[in-house]
């Protein structure tokens, strides 16, 4: 129930900000649309299932998660900028130094929202795109623009994935 109310307020504020400056009609419309939307998608966003987040949700725990999330945002922006220079270099270079390939990477994350964040961060960072996730086996299929020469297929590891995973586990698990 709290999740529903939180979502309603969130959608309501988004609608209000998008239609600023507002009048009475906009407020009524915002309330109706956000009621409908959060009635429709509540189960999608907060379906934790049996492998959901841990139950401890005290204030200090929340602050610690928030701090880790801010750290994640900083790391993410830095990696994102680096990724763009990397791809830009490969595109401009006359010979196009690419060695594309798709590989399997193991992940320890269990919750839906954690996996979503991990997959999206992989897509936006150095030369990698998520293709598919196998949630039961905990495997992410990643497409790389430049696979390193000494990559070992049996290790199922990628430095960038481990880096994000370590932070995201502290935020969402």
């Amino acid at each position: 129930m709290i999740a529903k109310i939180f979502l309603f307020i969130l959608w309501f504020l988004v609608w209000i900000f998008l239609s600023w400056p507002i009048n009475t009609g906009d407020v009524i419309m915002a309330a109706l649309v956000s009621l409908f939307v959060c009635y429709m998608i509540n189960d999608l966003l907060f379906s934790n299932g049996e492998t959901g987040r841990s139950k401890q949700t005290g204030l200090i725990d929340g602050i610690r998660r928030l701090a880790w999330f801010l750290y994640y945002v900083v790391v993410f922006v830095w990696e994102c900028v680096k990724a763009n220079f990397d791809v830009a270099y490969r595109v401009i270079h006359p010979d196009m130094p690419i060695r594309p390939g798709s590989i399997k990477v193991k992940t320890g994350l269990k919750s839906d929202i954690g996996l979503t964040f991990l997959a999206s961060s992989i897509t936006l960072t150095p030369g990698t795109t998520t293709i598919d996730i196998d949630k039961e086996k905990g495997i992410i299929y990643v497409h790389l623009i430049h696979l390193k020469n000494d990559y070992d297929p049996s290790s199922m590891r990628l430095a960038i994935v481990e880096k994000f995973e370590k932070i995201l586990r502290r935020v969402f698990e």
């Binding site: 594309p100 798709s102 399997k104 598919d132």
Partner: peptide, 29 residues
């Protein structure tokens, strides 16, 4: 943006779009 890229990549793979011949590894396939 990442979600749409993910969806496009997955659906191309599943509908059988071939990767470039210089591709060195194709574990998903």
């Amino acid at each position: 943006a990442p979600v749409s890229a993910h969806a496009l990549a997955r659906s191309s793979y599943l509908s059988g779009v071939k990767p470039w011949q210089g591709t060195v590894a194709d574990e998903y396939k």
